[in-house]
Simulated assay, not measured.
Amino acid sequence: MNYVRFKKDGKRNYGILDGKEVKLITGDIYQDYKLTDLVYQLSEVELLAPCNPTKIVCVGLNYLDHAQELGMEIPKEPLIFLKPTSALIGPADEIKYPQMGQQIDYEAELAIVIKKETKNISPQQAKEHILGYTCFNDVTARKLQARDGQWTRAKSFDTFAPIGPSIASGIAANNLEIKLLKNGEIKQNSNTKQMIFTVEEIVSFISQVMTLEAGDLIATGTPPGVGPVEREDKIEVQIEGIGTLKNMIK
């Protein structure tokens, strides 16, 4: 199942994406909903960020091949940080290149969408707390990240958290192809089986620190090949079973 959030005639709705059609639903995708008879062509609607998180939790250095690329020691537990929800944008929205940015990098990531309140759970319990998964671009002001020594400023500019196009449920998240294309050229190409910590381990770990709410996002780290962008670049995050998140740098 692929859930989308969209705007039609000025109204925001949830729907189920089926090929090039969006089937309108009523109710709460995190609890109970009903499928209606209304069907729109994908070209008739504006896709929005597929969820409204209370927080965006990110995991750093979570791919074996990325750690090897950087020559860094494998972390013994997930390294987590936060992005503000003010950074959130949806598919086709523009990523704004900030004046103080200096060097802006892309980072393709798989993001977990939480289904219900989650606190102090085990990895074995995690699946029942996950609604699904979406594409995420952890846009980063790399030179500011190095200068500050902590990551808040570098990760938090408005538009630095694109997600979408859908929330895919019922997929094997620990074995998915993940790619990033810049202007049609593949820059990142890996598989989530390279993740050091599985999605279940990540959700469990974070739930020991903070309470997760329905709709919250957890970005699970990026594979090797991270690099800079320039204005007018077209960035695509492609994840098997989810789709393609497309954004332009402006």
Rank of each mutant, 00 (worst) to 15 (best):
D148G: 10
D148L: 13
G149D: 10
Q150R: 11
W151Q: 14
W151V: 06
W151E: 11
W151K: 09
R153H: 04
R153K: 15
R153I: 15
A154I: 03
D158P: 12
D158R: 06
T159V: 06
F160N: 05
A161P: 07
P162D: 03
I163K: 01
I163F: 05
S166A: 14
I171L: 14
N174D: 15
N175Q: 15
I178H: 00
K179G: 07
L180R: 01
L180S: 13
L181W: 09
K182P: 05
K182W: 03
N183M: 13
N183L: 13
E185N: 14
E185C: 12
I186Q: 13
Q188E: 13
N191V: 15
K193M: 12
K193N: 14
Q194D: 14
T198D: 07
V203P: 02
F205S: 05
I206Q: 00
S207N: 08
T211V: 12
A214L: 07
A214N: 08
A214Y: 02
G215P: 04
L217N: 01
L217M: 09
L217G: 04
A219Q: 02
A219K: 02
T220D: 06
G221W: 01
T222N: 11
P223I: 01
G225D: 00
P228W: 01
P228V: 00
V229G: 00
E230P: 01
